[in-house]
Design a protein around this nucleic acid. Sequence first.
DNA 1: GTTGTAGGAGTACGTCGTACGCCTACAACG
DNA 2: CGTTGTAGGCGTACGACGTACTCCTACAAC
Lengths: 213, 213
Amino acid sequence: MYAVKAMPRPRSLTPAQLAAAALAVLDRDGLAGLTMRAVGAQLGTSTMGLYRYVADRDELEALVVERVLEPVDTHPPPDVPWADGIRDLAERVRRAVGLHPAVVPLLPAYRHRSPTILRWGEAVLAVLTGAGFTGTGRVIAFRALLGYVVGAIQMEHLGALAGPGTAVIAALPRDEFPLLAATARDAGVVVPEDEFGGGLDLLLDGLARRLDR
Amino acid sequence: MYAVKAMPRPRSLTPAQLAAAALAVLDRDGLAGLTMRAVGAQLGTSTMGLYRYVADRDELEALVVERVLEPVDTHPPPDVPWADGIRDLAERVRRAVGLHPAVVPLLPAYRHRSPTILRWGEAVLAVLTGAGFTGTGRVIAFRALLGYVVGAIQMEHLGALAGPGTAVIAALPRDEFPLLAATARDAGVVVPEDEFGGGLDLLLDGLARRLDR
DNA sequence: GTTGTAGGAGTACGTCGTACGCCTACAACG
DNA sequence: CGTTGTAGGCGTACGACGTACTCCTACAAC
């Protein structure tokens, strides 16, 4: 052991405060408004002061993503059929993201760096393993679920069939896109939760059939 | 009719040339390198000259996305079982995007503006309709397929289980994420095509079950 | 030729991320 | 309680971005 000659001045901000401020900016001004200057102003500190806490903007975004996902309960639901467990886990992520839709574009890139997402993935795998999936079958099941959840959440918030995008599609030339137009009309009566859950059920049914064989 | 006093100077660039140049920049320098200046330089023209052809950077990106997707054959495969038709259509998009992975982050946002994607969607709906899907069942089937295809393609190129991301996950603390670590190891022997196709098959099996009832 | 329109180049502005340097606050030591 | 060294906080400044605006120029129709 060597003697410590001096202790530095203590930090005046916590990472949690920083994340909260960045999320407030994101919710208020959208992803384009999430700048170092804006977050600095939100905290009443200087722009460059943020660099005492994060290496760059990338790290700030990672902090925001984690802040949004952190409330997700990553415990596998106990005592329910495995498919219900997966449904529950998927819906928890969808709900958390729905509270802060502006993070949606960040999710694909940051999904590996979020401890919460990793814990969530571990929980999904626990349910799949408990259901009897192993080896490459489990790999494909997991990947398919992850792909669907991420993709479907993006569809929902970046103009899904049942969303603002419906109007765009409904306005297409009827003769060139008759089925898209008809589907857009049908989509008007489907609420987002049912779209998300309905698609997930298709995947779960497919998985169930794998277990039967 | 009124007499035309003068005809303007003809355009020296075609939108196709512009799209090709932008795509070349994207392939070479990635999405961050796709700037108005870089595309101008690529064409040997001035930066501002591009604004004669596109309103803003957004429109340039739309041009690139369309350029990447344009080669996709959007004719529904004839004379095959409906599930094979969907598989084919999905794989065509996956292959086209795989040739230019840097566009992946743009896909979710621009999917509504691409004529090719719209034609592709119409083809998917034609296959689904031929298989017997209608109404809200068709809405959910379409949305699920679109969500899966977009999500899975992103997983593949932004660090999927079977990809560069595998290493990251394999390096996780073994005691906290035992299943993720094991799955990452199993994923090493699964090629991306099988991951994509395997997940899609799950969805198609789920859809087939809907038709049986 | 002459003429009118639109093309092309260049300049310039505001905003972004962030490198860097200055001064200051404060915990641990004598 | 004074000294000291580290790190915090702030401000300035730079390069790159998107793009508005101004000039000059090329060319098709007369």
